[in-house]
Amino acid sequence: MKYITNNSLIINNSYLACKFFGTLGNIDKYIKTVNNLPILSYNEEISLAYDLQKTNNLNAAQKMILSHLRLVVSISKRYLGYSFLHSDLIQEGNIGLMKAVKRFNPDQGVRLASYAIHWIRAEIHEYILKNSRLVKIATTKSQRKLFFNLRNYKENLNSMNLKKIDLLAKTLDVKRKDIIEMETRLSGKDIEMDYLYNNYDKLPLIFYLSTEITEPIKIIESLQYNRFQLKKLKSALNKLDIRSRRIVEARWLVENNSVATLHELAKEFSVSAERIRQIETVAFKKMKNLLKE
């Protein structure tokens, strides 16, 4: 449920849905009904606009909206080629109409229909861009312009060679590379990464994606970090006394699983196993402090 608020003015979009879709049952009846709604004269429109502006009269806003619902239907028909339900496009266009009514200034000397066209289109455009792909296909101003114009221009061109691309770029006031990039985006489609596309695939596409671990930058970072850690560890070991260093190396820095036990080291240094454990604990604390420094 979407609202447009301005102080005490609240225009609820569900009102239109309940009033028409809920009672009429289908889009064709809705369109037929809104096309039969009365059109406001210029004086009526200005009077209602002043009433809304000064008193936040919800009834005035409602009359202005209802009289322009046919405009939303007309504009939304131009976007049926984007594979969206007409009812959804109308719903979004109605939101744009409500925003236009909220911001309409009767002192500007223009009709609400002329002013509302921009808001209706903007809302439909935003809906299409957000829902066309999983990843938003157009974000910049030039990309949005190309998204809604490239298809129409391509229908009038037999091929998209560089000469025609340059002509189109000049017409739309965009760069050649933007047209090529948008054409590439539009020609592609979303791919389900966990779906098997044919009987020859043993694994879905998601299993073929590389992980961060195999990325060259991550590998270099890991190697540099390991070298840094090794350098610091050697420095800390060199600051231990000979016995403490021997115990730490024999217990934790050996290969081939030939780790010395406490009893083996106790026999080597002629002390108890508990004494070896104490020396090891003190050595670790000292190394920890050295590594912090």
Rank of each mutant, 00 (worst) to 15 (best):
N131V: 02
N198K: 04
V259N: 08
N199A: 14
Q229A: 15
L203F: 07
N105F: 03
L253G: 12
A250E: 13
T140M: 05
E192N: 10
I247F: 09
L262F: 01
I117D: 11
H263I: 07
K99N: 09
G81F: 00
L230G: 11
L203N: 14
A283L: 01
I27P: 05
E192T: 14
I219G: 05
L58K: 10
L134P: 01
Q53Y: 06
I165V: 04
L240P: 03
G81V: 00
I206F: 12
N7R: 05
M182Y: 05
R176A: 02
E264D: 06
I179E: 12
N199L: 12
S244N: 10
E249P: 04
L167P: 06
S76C: 03
A169C: 00
R78C: 01
N149E: 06
S114W: 07
N12D: 14
K231T: 11
E268G: 00
L291Y: 14
S87Q: 03
F104Q: 03
E255W: 09
E155G: 05
T139R: 12
N56A: 11
V248M: 11
L134E: 13
S142G: 01
I279R: 07
M64P: 01
E249C: 08
R275W: 14
I213T: 14
K164N: 14
N199I: 14
S41V: 02
E126C: 01
K170L: 02
K175G: 09
D173I: 09
S222P: 08
S8M: 00
L223R: 12
D178A: 13
A236R: 09
Y3D: 08
E293S: 15
K239S: 09
N152G: 10
L167C: 13
S244E: 14
D28L: 11
W119C: 14
I95W: 14
E123Q: 03
H263E: 04
H86M: 04
N12H: 10
I217V: 06
Q143F: 02
N289K: 14
I65E: 11
K130R: 12
L16D: 05
R151C: 10
N105H: 08
S41K: 08
K164E: 12
I124A: 06
L66T: 08
L66E: 15
K218T: 12
E280R: 08
N199P: 02
E92Q: 13
I247T: 11
Y195K: 15
N26L: 12
A113Q: 12
I10K: 11
L97Q: 05
Y82M: 04
L172Q: 12
K136Y: 08
D51Y: 07
A49G: 06
I120C: 03
L58V: 13
I4V: 14
K99A: 07
V72N: 08
L24H: 04
L58C: 06
T261I: 04
H263G: 00
E255M: 08
G22H: 10
G93H: 00
V72K: 01
V73S: 05
P204I: 10
F228Q: 13
D190V: 07
E92C: 06
M160V: 01
A266E: 06
E183K: 15
K288Q: 15
L134Y: 10
K288P: 00
P106K: 03
R121Q: 13
E268A: 03
K267R: 07
N226K: 10
N131G: 04
L97F: 03
G22V: 11
V271A: 02
I217N: 03
L24A: 09
T281E: 09
L230D: 15
S41P: 04
S8D: 07
A266I: 06
E181R: 15
V282N: 14
V34H: 06
V271N: 01
V72F: 02
